[in-house]
Design a protein around this nucleic acid. Structure first.
Length: 733
RNA sequence: GGGCGGUUAGCUCAGUUGGUAGAGCGUUGCACUGACGUUGCAAAGGCCACAGGUUCGAAUCCUGUACCGCCCACCA
């Protein structure tokens, strides 16, 4: 009996040692894999943000992905799983600003350069933590190809992409009403806006006694920025006023000039059927004003305070301004009605501040502009076709080249594309890829613009101070990590990638943007399959969050029960797209399972010490053993098919059941008589072979799910010419 | 306002192309110490949310209802 089996299985000790062995073997890098491997399998790791440490959601992601990767590697494919981290521009900058705030330091006190040093320091520190935690999960990632969304290679990719899009007219600079985050002091994209339901007061009033039409609003303070009142063209009530302009000399201390216009978007049934048009502070109003050639009147500034709003309101916070105007309207007898309504308020995802729509000069990606796609490998689009980004994104999925699992997410994806507006990509923060645009005589008549990879020669050029939305660089991830824009061997071999596995909350942020960037820049899809996993929630079905204090640290679970147990708890019977209600008892149960495997090993190994597995003649087996072996082979064929379709949640359950309730409870029990020499020597040998053969296949098929204990037990398997289980062959392909 | 998902044993969830339901945990009883007590054997427990429909037959397909959850949206 091998000594180590006298002790119970100690995951802690084994796991560290085994991961080390794997890493040193070099097999995480596909270049080093043994044998001839023609087919490839590649996947990028969705890069975790360098804002902190890993949570259970990451653990879930790593468990699923590592299991797939190990399976594919054992199938004999040249398998690449490429790691990286995401600089997560706004999130990381906000985090560091919070830390600095404790020392009463603001970023402007430090200056751009010093501040960025601090953020980098934090980011690299965080990256180190994340990498070590990722290793604890057993992830067989090729660390030699580690990438960071903000490193030099990725910066070159970003600049190259930006330049090409600019030259194709897909990136433009324009003044539009955007989502301004007054707390974060930056623009954010539509996708970073989160809607919250709140109660609000819906005021109905007239601008002045002489004004003929009453309007309604939840935001009276913006009304000093009104330039028009819009009514439905078919609305008989207001027909006589359409086209007229009314001068209001005093509206809470300022003057207004209001034209009556028509717009089909106005609902005659809603409110008074008349809408006060505030073009500078509402996207829909902006469009109405444009259609009617009316000016933009900005009355709220970047700090959410009133400006150009008359003596009474000037410099007031918007909440104060609202009260002042409401009081004034009442005092003047202009207020007609106050109602309580439910309103969905737009807030900034990161800072939580209420979004202030403001007109600003920003960089955008035009999703509707047609361009020529030089070379296309996408079904339904020929090289040289004219197309726009929206349709390109749609075709990639519609053609079936990108397959989203579960497929209900296809509909969600299409719906998002239909509602897609131009993507605002510039951010007024410091941490991120600085926009590769240089100006001469900025904001003057003589302004010159240079867009390029390198800073232009000559004096007087100043670079745009803004940085790019973090999802711009993340969108390039499948190919920037493989060396693009250089034509590398990796790019040829591993792109398009086979699988993208991620959570549904970043379907739009990331998955859609990757499809956009990849199809546009290299005319390929980024990945063949998208596997969407659910969110990990607590026992009360709440999201894990720091403020709730319910965050379960995956490392704590690993310490208590071992990585294999945690992986199984996150994998078994969890269908794609399905949220997981995390429960510690489940982890506990799989720790028991690990113990079971350990004891099966102990029993089998100690029962075959007098047996030569390598030189056994299979023809000696009786039908009894042959049938048992055959039935397990049938199971392997079944699960192999499932694994190829990424149905890990089915496979893991079936293997669990076979190992415990077939192999251990029945087959092993029924073999005892023979093993204890109570039958014949031939029968004993047959049983010894059968058990070893079953166990060999069990270890191999279970390895992707529970890599550590299977590798640990495999080390003692009585067979010559063994490799690491990591690179052993899958029993039936 | 539009769209999507869920509703299966006490709890957490599976259920491929329609053939009267499965797993883990929990519960109850029994067994047992020559792999494992982080054990074994066995049992109880479900008109598969509700109402219609298609079908020889539906948890599985169709329609509607209810409750829970999610996503999207420029109703001021």
């Amino acid at each position: 009996m091998i000594n180590k089996y006298l002790q119970p299985y100690d995951p802690k000790e084994a796991e560290e040692k085994i991961y080390d062995t794997w890493e040193k073997s070099g097999f995480f890098n596909p270049n080093n894999l043994p044998g001839e491997r023609k087919e490839t399998f590649s996947m990028v790791l969705p890069p975790p943000n360098v804002t902190g440490k890993l949570h259970l959601g990451h653990a879930d992601m790593l468990a699923i992905e590592d299991t797939v990767v190990r399976f594919q590697r054992m199938l004999g494919k040249k398998t690449l799983w490429l790691p990286g981290t995401d600089h997560a521009a706004i999130a990381t900058q906000t985090k560091v600003e919070k830390i600095l705030a404790k020392e009463k330091i603001r970023r402007h006190d430090l200056g751009r350069e010093k501040f960025l040093e601090k953020v980098n320091e934090f980011a690299m520190d965080s990256q180190k933590t994340i990498i070590s935690q990722t290793k604890r999960m057993g992830s067989s990632l090729d660390w030699s190809r580690l990438a960071f969304t903000l490193d030099d290679q990725r910066n070159l990719a970003v600049k190259t992409a930006f330049k090409k899009m600019y030259e194709d007219g897909l990136i433009y600079r324009g003044k539009k009403v955007i989502n301004w985050d007054p707390k974060g002091q930056t623009v954010i994209s539509d996708d970073e806006v989160v809607y919250e339901d709140r109660k609000a007061v819906f005021y109905t009033f007239k601008y002045s006694k002489d004004f003929p039409i009453a309007i309604s609003t939840t935001r009276p303070e913006t009304k000093v920025g009104d330039v028009a009142v819009a009514v439905n063209p078919s609305d008989e009530r207001y027909k006589e006023f359409v086209g007229k302009t009314f001068e209001i000399e005093n509206f809470c201390g300022t003057s207004l000039s209001i034209k009556i216009i028509t717009d089909r978007e106005v609902d005659p049934e809603f409110g008074t059927g008349a809408l006060g048009v505030t073009p500078a502070h509402s996207k829909i109003d902006e469009k109405m004003a444009q259609d009617n050639n009316l000016p933009l009147k900005k009355v709220i500034n970047e700090y959410a305070k009133m400006e150009n709003a008359g003596d009474i309101l000037e410099g007031k916070k918007i909440s104060e301004a609202r009260e002042i105007i409401v009081d004034w309207l009442k005092k003047e007898g202009l207020m007609i009605k106050e109602e309580y309504v439910n309103q969905s308020v737009s807030t900034a995802e990161r800072s939580g501040a209420i979004i202030e729509p403001l007109p600003k000069l920003q960089w955008f990606i035009d999703v509707n502009k047609k361009f020529k796609l030089p070379s296309s490998k996408i079904d339904g689009i020929k090289s040289g076709d004219e197309i726009d980004l929206k349709h390109l994104m749609k075709y990639a999925v519609e053609s079936g080249e990108v397959n989203i699992l579960p497929d209900r997410f296809n509909k969600i994806y299409y719906h998002w594309i239909e509602n897609l507006h131009d993507w605002c990509i510039s951010r007024q923060i410091w941490y991120g890829h600085q926009i590769p645009v240089w100006y001469k005589n900025k904001d003057t008549e003589k302004e010159e613009i240079f867009v390029g990879i390198e800073e232009p020669k000559g004096d007087d050029w100043e670079q745009d101070p803004d940085t790019l939305d973090t999802w711009f660089s993340a969108g390039l991830w499948t190919f920037s990590t493989l060396g693009w824009p250089n034509e590398t061997n990796d790019l040829k071999l591993y792109h398009p990638t086979d699988l993208l596995e991620t959570a549904h909350d970043i379907l739009f942020f990331w998955v859609a943007r990757m499809i956009l960037m990849t199809t546009y820049l290299i005319g390929e899809i980024p990945f063949k399959t998208v596997y969407i996993h659910g969110l990990v929630r607590d026992e009360q079905n709440r999201k894990f969050s720091k403020s709730l204090g319910n965050a379960t640290d995956p490392l704590e679970m690993i310490e208590k029960y071992g990585t294999d147990a945690l992986r199984m708890a996150l994998l078994v019977a969890v269908a794609p797209g399905q949220d997981i209600k995390f429960n510690e008892d489940k982890v506990k149960a799989y720790k028991k399972f690990a113990n079971k495997i350990w004891n099966i090993a102990r029993f089998i190994y100690s029962s075959v010490e007098d047996f030569d597995y390598d030189n056994f003649d299979i023809n000696k087996l009786t039908d009894f053993e042959k049938n048992i072996l055959k039935s397990f082979d049938d199971l392997i064929i079944e699960i192999t098919g499932e694994m190829k379709e990424y149905k890990l949640y089915l496979t893991s359950e079936k293997l669990y059941h076979f190992v415990w309730h077939e192999l251990a409870d029945k087959i092993l029990e029924e073999s005892k008589e023979a093993l204890f020499d109570k039958t014949t020597p031939e029968d004993k040998a047959n049983k010894q072979f059968m058990l070893l053969n079953l166990f060999e296949k069990v270890l191999k098929t279970l390895h992707p799910f529970m890599p550590f204990i299977t590798e640990e037990v495999w080390a003692d398997f009585p067979k010559k010419n063994k490799k690491l289980l990591l690179v052993e062959e899958w029993p039936i392909k």
